[in-house]
């Protein structure tokens, strides 16, 4: 259950006030959630693949992506170690989407 805290932190980005605080003062938000140094580093670096290995649910990654303006497709490509363009060549349809509200 070592990944519970970081998963909870990312899940709470569904609350608008939490999104605003994360964007304005991420270090304060990390501290308030008592994230470990490793967890803060993973989020700062947008280390998508490493977060998966750490135990972060993909559904939390897409919440983070939505808040920082990174599409799901960018995240998929990054997890594979590819550029978006390389990844999209393997798809039947070239689309972008995220869970961000419009």
């Amino acid at each position: 259950m070592k990944a519970y805290r970081i998963n909870k932190f990312l899940h709470e980005l569904i609350v608008p006030a939490n999104r605003a605080r994360f964007l304005e003062a991420p270090e304060d938000a990390f501290a308030q959630a008592a994230l470990s140094d490793e967890e803060r580093d993973l989020i700062r670096r947008r280390a998508w693949r490493e977060m998966i290995h750490y135990g972060v649910s993909f559904f939390m990654l897409e919440k983070l992506g939505a808040v920082i303006g990174t599409s799901n497709l960018h995240i998929y490509a990054a997890m594979r170690g590819e550029t978006l363009e390389e990844f999209q060549k393997s798809r039947n349809a070239q689309i972008l989407y995220s869970t961000a509200p419009r």
Binding site: G69, H74, L96, S98
Partner: peptide, 12 residues
Amino acid sequence: PASSARLPPRTR
């Protein structure tokens, strides 16, 4: 979010 650089609104 206003900071969204890469993905325009209404993409989804």
